Amino acid sequence: MSRAEKHVIVRRIKHYFSQELQQQIGSFDAEFMLDFFAGKIGAYFYHRGLYDVQAALSRKIDDIQDAILQREQATSLQR
């Protein structure tokens, strides 16, 4: 992720701690936490995203195949 993206996420982590947990943490701690979670569980979210994209593409391919079959015209030849 870019430096700007990391900065936004760090701010959100700090805001979460402040609002939900009534604790103040610094940018260093928030960035450390982000790095920890990204390293330890980031791959799970990444893989879930890949599976979701694969399922969406599979549905689209099925739709395209159906559309092609609907346009098929009868001939004396068999498949």
Rank of each mutant, 00 (worst) to 15 (best):
S2M: 00
R3I: 04
R3C: 02
A4P: 08
E5N: 09
E5L: 06
K6Q: 10
K6P: 00
K6H: 06
K6F: 01
H7K: 14
H7T: 11
H7A: 11
H7E: 11
V10G: 00
V10M: 01
R12N: 11
R12T: 06
I13A: 02
I13G: 00
I13F: 02
K14M: 15
K14Q: 15
H15I: 09
H15C: 08
Y16A: 15
Y16R: 12
F17R: 02
F17I: 01
S18W: 14
S18E: 13
S18Y: 15
Q19A: 14
Q22A: 05
Q23I: 10
Q23F: 14
I25P: 11
I25W: 07
G26C: 10
G26T: 12
G26F: 03
S27R: 13
D29K: 15
D29L: 13
D29Q: 15
A30E: 01
A30N: 04
A30K: 04
A30P: 06
E31R: 09
E31N: 09
F32N: 04
F32G: 05
F32A: 08
M33G: 06
M33R: 03
M33D: 02
M33I: 09
L34Q: 03
D35L: 13
D35G: 09
D35Y: 04
F36Y: 02
F37A: 04
F37V: 13
A38Q: 11
G39M: 07
G39W: 03
G39N: 09
K40E: 08
K40I: 08
K40C: 04
I41N: 04
I41F: 14
I41L: 12
A43K: 05
A43C: 03
A43P: 02
A43E: 11
Y44R: 13
Y44P: 01
Y44F: 14
F45N: 03
F45S: 08
F45I: 04
F45K: 03
F45Y: 15
Y46C: 02
H47F: 14
H47C: 07
R48G: 04
G49L: 03
L50P: 00
L50T: 13
Y51M: 07
Y51C: 10
Y51N: 14
D52A: 12
D52R: 13
V53C: 06
Q54L: 11
Q54T: 15
Q54F: 05
Q54M: 10
A55I: 10
A55Y: 09
A55M: 11
A55Q: 15
A56R: 12
A56S: 14
L57M: 11
L57P: 01
L57D: 07
K60G: 07
K60F: 08
D62L: 00
D63A: 13
D63W: 06
D63I: 01
I64A: 13
I64Y: 08
Q65W: 03
Q65S: 02
Q65Y: 04
Q65H: 07
D66G: 01
A67S: 14
L69A: 08
L69T: 05
Q70K: 12
Q70S: 12
R71F: 00
R71A: 00
R71H: 01
E72H: 01
E72R: 03
E72Y: 00
Q73F: 15
Q73S: 13
T75C: 07
T75D: 06
T75S: 15
S76M: 11
S76V: 12
L77D: 08
Q78I: 14
Q78A: 08
Q78N: 14
R79K: 11
R79N: 05
R79H: 05
R79P: 04
R79S: 06
